[in-house]
Amino acid sequence: MAAEASTGMNERVIRVRLKRQDGPDARPRWESFDVPVGTGSNVTSVLQWICAHPVTVEGKNTTPPVYDSGCLEEVCGSCTMVVNGRVRQACSALIDHYCPKDGDELTLEPMTKFPVVRDLSVDRSRLFSNLERMRAWVPVDGTYDLGAGPEETPEAQQTRYVLSTCMSCGCCLEACPQYTLETDEEAWDRAFVGAAVISQARYFNMHETGSSLKKVRLTELSGPGGVSDCGNAQNCVNVCPKEIPLTESIAAIGRQVTAHNIRQFFSGD
């Protein structure tokens, strides 16, 4: 872990306001830190620096802040947090963008749609639980050699590829006005699944083998917490760090669900 927060160019000191919370039931509080930064610094390197120097601006010793991080190149989805009021990945949040001048202020908060574990770290289990609910997998017949998979046009591959880059970071859920905090695990099967999960359902429905579970997925998406709970605010697509066409996924699933229900109404099964 690097203790340096900058590469040495354009050195300056910024004021970081951090929302702290000792545990899920603890009261949140604010702490401020003065952090030396430079060109190339990002929110993660700032947090690394604070961990190595956990002293507030008042000179009070405090505990190193708890936060999630992983790959630091925006493919693992770990470091989602609320930076200056908006959700994003901390690793790609460059300080030059947020605090170009000496003394500029940066505010870091945990996501609000997931239960806080501690400080900036939240519990996103609901997202993974909903992927399971959506049968987000291709039901292969095991790992024995059964030849290649279904052929696919390059166009279809390109569409699927983009959907497959979803890293379950949760930005789309945090920004969604229809996705609300739900701490009761029992309720996760009825609460809104959100754009990420709807988009994954579309991804698996597009695959020849994956589509064998299409009916199950569409029935699930017709019910409470399914695609009709979407309010079309379209924040999801605006905050997605991977620029996944989430609103197209929602509309595509809307179409599938419409057809599925009409078919079901007349066929009766």
Partner: peptide, 22 residues
């Protein structure tokens, strides 16, 4: 080669040629 086939069956979106080959 068999590992690639398996991953293909699992739905990995391998890039495709115009003909649809990997």
């Amino acid at each position: 080669p068999r590992i690639i086939d398996l991953l293909d069956r699992m739905g990995v979106p391998f890039n495709r040629t115009a003909e649809g080959q990997r």
